[in-house]
Design a protein around this nucleic acid. Structure first.
Lengths: 170, 170
DNA sequence: ATCGAATATTTCGTCATCGAAGTTCGATTT
DNA sequence: AAATCGAACTTCGATGACGAAATATTCGAT
């Protein structure tokens, strides 16, 4: 049964790619992009379930991760909205809610009082850390069929893609 | 400037990974997963802008793609909800709206009248095809720094991951 | 055969999100 | 120095999504 499903997952993916090619996409492109989204779609499902244990939505997770990645640098609501792919007006309420839970704090920027600076509290970082450790379980499971060398190669190829991303908008 | 940004994109990614590792994640895992999400986040931004030209939201795109991938097989609202990572109750209104635009049709399943069968119309498939062809532009740009051999290798590694995805829930 | 459990879909109330307008502050121009 | 333009954040009205309850149909058990 496991073996059967393993075959069909590949077959399904191949069939999906051929649909996109039939609709006008390039094979070498669709094969990669479709695969990337197949992975993230499944991961997203698990994130929702795992984060529910921590009373965390994907949107709140995005804010938490953005602030954690910024380190000591405070971020403004606008920056957080951009990083979270969300409208600035949506960020207002989200920050209100997360601030109410004590996960972050807002303080006015003294040098420019139109800006607000957002930073993680100790509780916020603790929740981020807990979420990372929980996520790492399924993420590790996801990559379990890849050797260390293959993970390294996969990361290397993706990093080539990342390096070129910012030059495309222009 | 382009060269500078190319370096910083890699540096930023490396810094992000180290944050996740500091929070308790494994390096070999986080390096891959973080990279995958960096790519999809950027792609999602472009999809929103490109699909706006076609009056298509990401949710509607998900329905369109699911039905197209199913080919001749009709899907039920529940199946579409699962495939779109959305609640069944949300799918009802989404199908109403898309049906009103003539993109799909709902008909009762004669063999089991609790079920409803959804299928793409000709207009629906045309819109799917148009969206694929538009998306392929940025997707192709995204992979432009990868040789054919590298794309093949990237796809191969991702397909190994995909093959194991279904076995994890259990 | 009838009753009860399970499944699929749709309403309904509530919350999140969006786009637009409003408000406050900073910067540039005249 | 005053005024206008622009930027950042927040409110506001409307749409979309969720979870729970309601409806309808099928399947299983007594």
């Amino acid at each position: 049964m496991a073996a059967k499903r393993r075959q069909t997952a590949q077959q399904e993916h191949a069939a999906d790619v051929s649909i996109y090619v039939a609709a006008g996409g390039e094979e070498s492109v669709q094969r990669v992009i479709t695969a990337v989204y197949a992975v993230t779609k499944k991961l997203d499902q698990w994130y929702v379930r795992q984060f529910a244990d921590l009373d965390l939505t994907q949107g709140e997770w995005s804010v938490l991760a953005s602030l954690a990645r910024a380190g000591d640098t405070c971020l403004t609501p606008s920056q957080l909205a951009d990083l979270s792919n969300v409208a600035p007006s949506s960020m207002t309420h989200r920050l209100d809610k997360m601030g109410g839970r004590g996960l972050l704090q807002r303080r006015p920027d003294e040098s420019n009082r139109t800006r607000t600076l957002v930073s993680l509290t100790k509780d916020g970082w603790a929740l981020f850390s807990a979420a990372v450790r929980e996520s790492n379980v399924v993420e590790s499971d996801t990559l379990r069929d890849l050797s260390d060398a293959e993970r390294h190669e996969l990361a290397r190829l993706l990093e080539i893609v990342i390096a070129g991303l910012d030059d495309i908008d222009a």
